[in-house]
């Protein structure tokens, strides 16, 4: 049901990865994604994979959680593999082995290797992105985004960055509230005999109206109330605001950056040499 939706899926722990500065994690996620895409051969992909797997161990998140995440993208994974399996590509190398299935769909050792390579790339992408949300609270993430985008103030976008970050924080904060509210309204209408489970598609869509209208009205009401409460506390945008929890890089962050840079440099070197 609705309460099974857990957005962001943060998992409380005091691991090394949890304690890293959210900006470090966000930047390194970007760098690792780039590394995954510039890896042209198995050796460099293996290096990225090693980096990601060791960070998984340091995150102390049960492997089961990552696997659960993969289940959702299995269809995309299989689709990518099948497409790549039959795609000859632009390579000039002659395949050592090939098998014609029917018509002109041919599998070669090159296409087979490419299909597995592509699937591994997607797997690594998903695992490393999941690790960020598992180890970082949504609020920390928005703080990091605001902080990283703050140079935009030099081109006159200071308020835009703060407003965007505030909007994200508020949106994340109200997801559980709205889920709870939806559940409540659904129950209230069910108590009045609303039938939400049965009926044809059109009937089911119609049955949503008694839920969506009260939900919309209460969201608007909440927005007004929140705006008033913020104004009562003299909120007037980002100008001159300071944080209670300042973001600070420390030794762990530099150490992690260093390792990722070394791996990155190695991969670029491998790409040039091979």
């Amino acid at each position: 049901m609705l309460k099974d939706i857990t957005f962001g899926q943060y998992f409380e722990s005091k691991s090394f990865v949890h304690k890293l500065d959210p900006r470090t994690k966000l930047l390194l996620l970007l760098i690792i994604i780039i590394l995954i895409f510039i890896s042209k051969n198995w050796l460099s992909l293996l290096l990225v994979a090693l980096l990601i797997f060791s960070s998984m161990i340091f995150s102390k998140i049960p492997i089961k959680m990552y696997l659960k995440n993969l289940k959702a993208v299995l269809p995309i994974l299989i689709f990518t593999m099948i497409i790549n399996l039959f795609y000859a590509g632009s390579t000039t190398a002659t395949p050592k082995w090939s098998q014609n299935l029917f018509w002109n769909l041919t599998i070669t050792d090159i296409s087979l290797s490419r299909a597995v390579f592509m699937a591994s790339r997607i797997l690594l992408l998903i695992i490393v992105s999941a690790e960020l949300t598992y180890t970082t609270t949504p609020n920390d993430l928005t703080d990091a985004i605001e902080n990283l985008l703050s140079p935009l103030r030099f081109i006159g976008l200071k308020n835009a960055v703060h407003t965007l970050a505030m909007m994200m924080t508020i949106a994340l904060r109200f997801i559980p509230t709205l889920i709870e509210e939806t559940q409540k309204i659904m129950n209230a209408q069910k108590a009045r005999g609303a039938d939400l489970e049965n009926g044809k598609l059109i009937e089911r869509i119609k049955a949503l109206i008694p839920i969506l209208i009260p939900l919309l009205i209460s969201s608007v009401r909440r927005a007004y109330e929140l705006a008033e409460a913020m104004e009562c506390r003299c909120y007037n945008g980002g100008e001159g605001r300071i944080r209670m929890k300042q973001l600070k890089y420390n030794f762990d962050d530099f150490f992690t950056f260093l390792i990722v840079f070394i791996v990155g440099a190695t991969i670029i070197a491998i790409n040039i040499i091979l």
């Binding site: 309204i185 209230a188 209408q189 009045r192 005999g193 009260p214």
Partner: peptide
């Protein structure tokens, strides 16, 4: 339910009261 006024949704009072009996 608590605060039942938050479940009102129809455009007239008549139609809102009629929701239960109609169901």
């Amino acid at each position: 339910f608590q605060y039942p006024e938050y479940q009102l949704f129809e455009d007239t009072v008549y139609r809102d009261i009629a929701f239960g009996p109609k169901n």
